[in-house]
């Protein structure tokens, strides 16, 4: 706390020195708010705080994290959509808020493509398909074969049928013709516990959460959700190697209210690129389960291209699963 207030005093001092007329070149002139549509302490929040900490130092103004959790990101996204587009409000948006909600929530109160402009892609998070070690399957193919012997016998622990790991499970069921039963958990720890004890022999979890359980052998990773293998588990094949187009992923993108001056977006995206290139951020991200963005997607135009592609792709997957917005 002492450290915190000292830093603030320094930031204040810096601001006193740097006065001048308000123009995009002088941005930021006052503290910048970054809305996180998730509760304080969730993994997107932690990542956001690591990055805003760097931004505060680099740009000489306090970047304040404003947690607006609730209603599957809707509360935070809605308040960000209504915020002034003067370059002093940004939102740390999740893939759920940007590309899943439009297809699962009726009368969504914000439009991800029209109310916001992308600033920078920040990170992806990876999901793994894991089994309890007693399950006699060492690969996705063997798991599917096992399930087909007795359809409906395997239970899979997920975060809910309309959330990312639930969607992945349903996509596998649909493409492989299996009938795994989805068991919804809203706390990750309970899901992991039930998979370790074998009640739900299969689970789909964010890679960071299950890392220790893979290490001590209480869970076995058999596939990576997405179309490519990941650096931390190079020998675990991607689902897409067997089932085409199960490429659902979680990711995070900084967005601004539409109409925010382009040069501010540019400066912000460059600052974010610099922040995520710092060695201690790079070092911490894998532990939190994030793969930091590289290259083109960190720019506003690259982020836009990525968002548009994901928006369309997720839509086709969700519609093909027969999920209706409600």
């Amino acid at each position: 706390m002492l450290i915190l207030s000292r830093r603030m005093a320094l930031a204040g001092l810096g601001a006193l020195v740097a006065c001048g007329p308000a123009a995009a070149a002088d941005w930021p002139q006052k503290p910048v708010t970054v809305i996180v549509p998730q509760a304080a302490g969730n993994s997107p929040d932690v990542l956001c705080r690591i990055i805003t900490d760097k931004l505060s130092r680099a740009l000489g103004q306090q970047f304040v994290v404003d947690n607006r959790p609730g209603a599957a990101n809707v509360v935070g996204m809605q308040s960000a959509a209504r915020a002034a587009n003067d370059g002093y409000t940004f939102v740390f948006a999740t893939s759920a808020a940007l590309v899943t909600n439009p297809y699962t929530i009726k009368n969504l109160s914000y439009d991800p493509l029209k109310d916001f402009v992308p600033v920078a892609m920040v990170a992806k998070s990876h999901h793994l398909l894991l089994v309890n070690p007693n399950v006699k399957a060492n690969s996705l193919a063997e798991l599917i074969a096992l399930e087909k012997e007795k359809p409906g016998s395997l239970s899979v622990a997920v975060d809910g049928p309309r959330n990312i790991s639930g969607l992945i499970a349903q996509a596998i069921n649909k493409q492989a013709g299996t009938k795994m039963v989805l068991v919804p958990y809203n706390t990750i720890s309970n899901a992991v516990q039930d998979s370790i004890s074998g009640r739900t022999p299969v689970t789909i979890q964010s890679a960071s959460v299950v890392e220790p359980f893979i290490k001590d052998g209480s869970l076995r990773a058999i596939a990576v959700a997405g179309n490519e293998r990941i650096s931390t588990h190079p020998d675990v094949p991607a689902i897409a190697e067997m089932l085409k187009s199960v490429e659902l992923q979680g990711w995070f993108m900084v967005m601004a209210p539409v109409g925010t001056p382009a040069d501010i977006l540019d400066r912000m995206s460059k600052a974010i690129a610099a922040a995520i290139a710092e060695p201690d951020v790079k070092e911490r991200a894998p532990g939190l389960g994030f793969e930091l963005a590289k290259g083109e997607p960190i720019s506003p135009s690259g982020a836009k291209a990525f968002l548009d592609a994901q928006y369309a792709y997720t839509g086709t997957v969700i519609k093909s699963l027969g999920i209706e917005p409600n």
């Binding site: 302490g41 960071s208 220790p212 911490r284």
Partner: peptide, 13 residues
């Protein structure tokens, strides 16, 4: 979260 940020993965190890 605090442990993982510090590079410690909680668990039996």
């Amino acid at each position: 979260g605090a442990m993982t940020i510090q590079g410690i993965i909680p668990g039996p190890q």
